[in-house]
Amino acid sequence: MTRRLRRIASFAAFLLCPLAAATPAAAQESAAAEALFNRGLADMEAGKYEAGCPAIAESHRLEPKPGALFTLAICESRWGRVASAFKRFGEYLALHEQMTPAQQSRQGERAKVAREERERLAPLVPELSLSLPPGAPAGTVVKRDGEAVDAALLSTGVPVDPGEHVVSTQAPGGPVWETRIQIAEGEKKRVELQVSRAPTAAPSGGISGRRAAAYVAGGVGLAGLVLGGVTGALTLGKKSVVEEHCGSAIGQSDETACDPMGLAASESASTTGLVSTIGFGVGLAGLGTAAVLLLTEPEQGEAAAGATSRRIRAGVLAAGPGGVLIGARGAW
């Protein structure tokens, strides 16, 4: 063998190797398809369509053949899946038209049977029309029996098999809403679906400015009460010192006369007493303001409309030379 012939032989072997390797795999798929078809056909003849039809469908998927497609259509028709059978017979007829006369001849009466079955099944095929409610969020996904429904098919009657169908909707970021729909042979049903919207995000900070102000006022009020209580206790403590170091306690007829310790205690008590009074005043004012702000806060959903569920209004109740009176009026 010349060098040129060796090269040609080597190149041919290189091209044929993948084909030789693929042949066993193709043979295995063909054998599996034949086994599935035979098992499915036996189940179909025994009336076990729920097992037979899927087996024939898988056989046709592994090795598409006109005979398997026709048998699958017959199986689904007997099973009551009229929409699927109608579709399969149509696929078979479309395939039959592409065959050569010799191939069509080998199909026998199958094309005639397919046409007759389609005519018989046509009025039995149910149609289900699904639509979204007005204002449904853009991008809402609709699924029927786990398969997404094209947006262009919404509000259009689509052939479906009789029985129960699981339909769901899901808005972007929202939870899944699901329902089950029963439809009978020949029925045309329209269903408007529901959509569960995504949860509304809380406002920045989580609370309104009015509620925040109420919390601040309440905090100031509590601090004022604590201050008033502490300084009040100190004032009471200083009072006992004054009683021991002023007036008759030190031999003086004037009760306001005090020794140095009593004088210091008296001045200190005067200061802490004033602070205690101011603290209690601030505390009560702060808590009162917080209460008014909370009681007059509009409920959620009503604030935008300018309404509240309570007839209490805060503001200036009276004003005069002596000062201003702030409070709330109305009915609870």
Rank of each mutant, 00 (worst) to 15 (best):
R120K: 15
L121K: 07
L121D: 05
L121G: 08
L121R: 05
P123A: 12
P123V: 06
V125D: 01
P126N: 11
P126G: 09
L128C: 09
L128R: 04
L130D: 02
S131V: 10
L132M: 11
P133Y: 04
G135A: 14
A136G: 07
A138P: 05
G139Q: 05
T140R: 04
V141Q: 08
V141T: 15
R144P: 02
D145W: 07
D145K: 13
D145E: 07
G146I: 13
G146T: 11
G146M: 09
E147N: 11
E147S: 14
E147Y: 01
E147F: 04
A148Y: 00
D150I: 08
A151N: 02
L154Y: 06
S155P: 00
G157V: 10
G157C: 10
P162L: 13
G163L: 14
H165L: 14
H165Q: 10
V166K: 14
T169S: 09
A171I: 15
P175F: 06
T179F: 00
T179I: 09
R180H: 06
R180Q: 11
I181T: 04
I181V: 15
I183S: 11
E187M: 11
K188F: 02
K188V: 15
R190W: 02
R190F: 03
V191A: 06
L193R: 06
V195C: 06
A198Y: 01
A201H: 04
A202D: 01
P203Q: 12
P203E: 12
S204H: 01
S204A: 15
G206I: 06
S208I: 08
G209Y: 01
R210V: 15
R210I: 13
R211V: 14
A212F: 03
A212D: 01
A214L: 05
Y215A: 13
Y215F: 14
Y215C: 08
V216H: 01
V216Y: 01
A217Y: 02
A217M: 15
A217P: 00
G219T: 09
L222N: 05
L222V: 13
A223F: 04
A223C: 04
L225V: 15
L227W: 01
G228S: 09
G229R: 02
V230Q: 07
V230W: 10
T231D: 01
G232R: 03
L234H: 02
T235Y: 01
L236F: 04
L236W: 03
G237T: 08
K239A: 15
S240C: 03
S240L: 10
V241E: 07
E244M: 06
E244T: 07
H245P: 05
A249T: 02
G251N: 12
Q252T: 09
